[in-house]
Simulated assay, not measured.
Amino acid sequence: MFSEFAYTIFEESIQKYHVKDDVYQEFSNPYEKDNIAHLLYRKNWIDTVQWHYEDIIRDPNIEPGAALVLKRKIDASNQDRTDLVEYIDSYFLQKYQSVEKKPNATINTESPAWAIDRLSILALKVYHMKEEAERIDASEEHVSKCQQKLNTLLEQKKDLSLAIDQLLTDIEAGNKYMKVYKQMKMYNDEELNPILRGQKG
């Protein structure tokens, strides 16, 4: 099943990141560019680095200048994340381009790649909640609460994985069809963001 394949790659990316656990470490993709695994690994790496950017920027003692630099990195990361989702959806569009859509076929509320995006974030939540549930320096109450949350996350993983695989099966059978709407983000566009537009020239 695709969800299991994707989740395994997400776990690989997360584990690799935490060997150094440094947002500034060099990125290396172990998969060939023409392999969907390449996109999945890159996608999760972006999510993992941004997860830790978000931790750092919440430091109450962070200097304003450093916070601004980090905010810019988070903005760029969000754009990279969106781009990768669209690349992944393009993979599915190409894969299913010859499928004949049934007359009563319906469209899903989100594309396959945006569901996979949620699975990538969920893999990060599971990893970090498991860390908390296994902390030997934490109170029993803390460990117990985190274990309960971990159990819920694992149930969510099961449900989301099933939903992703069902969606892909339905698309392949022509029962559902997909469209990709390019994300029309305005805040990074000098022509659409009035603040950036005012600074031009």
Score class of each variant (00 low, 15 high):
Ser3Thr: 12
Ala6Asn: 08
Tyr7Gly: 03
Ile9Trp: 02
Glu12Phe: 11
Glu12Tyr: 10
Glu12Met: 09
Ser13Asn: 06
Ile14Glu: 04
Lys16Trp: 05
Lys16Gln: 10
Lys16Ile: 03
Tyr17Leu: 01
His18Phe: 06
Asp22Cys: 03
Asp22Thr: 06
Val23Ile: 03
Tyr24Glu: 12
Gln25Arg: 08
Phe27Met: 14
Tyr31Asn: 03
Glu32Cys: 01
Lys33Gly: 10
Lys33Trp: 07
Asn35Arg: 15
Arg42Leu: 07
Lys43Asp: 04
Asn44Lys: 02
Trp45Ala: 05
Ile46Tyr: 03
Ile46Arg: 07
Val49Leu: 04
Gln50Thr: 09
Asp55Phe: 15
Ile56Met: 01
Ile57Arg: 00
Arg58Thr: 10
Pro60Tyr: 06
Asn61Ala: 12
Glu63Gln: 12
Pro64Arg: 12
Ala67Asn: 03
Val69Glu: 10
Leu70Asp: 00
Lys71Ser: 05
Asp75Pro: 01
Gln79Phe: 05
Gln79Gly: 01
Leu84Val: 11
Val85Trp: 10
Glu86Val: 09
Tyr87Thr: 05
Tyr87Pro: 01
Ile88Gly: 02
Ser90Met: 13
Tyr91His: 14
Leu93Pro: 06
Gln94Gly: 15
Lys95Phe: 03
Tyr96Ile: 04
Tyr96Pro: 02
Glu100Phe: 02
Lys101Trp: 04
Lys101Leu: 05
Pro103Glu: 02
Asn104Thr: 08
Asn104Leu: 11
Asn108Pro: 05
Thr109Phe: 09
Thr109Met: 11
Glu110Phe: 09
Ser111Asn: 15
Pro112Phe: 10
Ala113Trp: 01
Ala115Thr: 08
Asp117Lys: 10
Arg118Ser: 13
Ser120Val: 04
Ile121Asp: 13
Ile121Gln: 13
Leu122Phe: 01
Ala123Ile: 02
Leu124Val: 05
Val126Met: 10
Val126Tyr: 05
Val126Lys: 03
His128Pro: 01
His128Val: 00
Ala133Tyr: 09
Arg135Ser: 11
Glu140Lys: 12
Glu140Asn: 13
Glu141Gly: 13
Glu141Ala: 14
His142Pro: 04
Val143Ser: 06
Lys145Gln: 07
Lys149Tyr: 11
Asn151Phe: 12
Thr152Ala: 11
Leu153Lys: 04
Lys158Phe: 04
Lys158Pro: 03
Lys158Gly: 08
Ser161His: 06
Leu162Asn: 09
Ala163Asp: 15
Thr169Val: 11
Asp170Glu: 05
Lys176Glu: 13
Tyr177Ser: 05
Lys179Asp: 05
Tyr181Asn: 06
Gln183Ile: 02
Met184Ser: 03
Asp189Val: 03
Glu190Gly: 14
Glu190Trp: 14
Glu190Ile: 15
Leu192Tyr: 05
Ile195Gln: 11
Ile195Val: 11
Leu196Val: 00
Leu196Asn: 00
Gly198Thr: 05
Lys200Gly: 00
Gly201Phe: 11
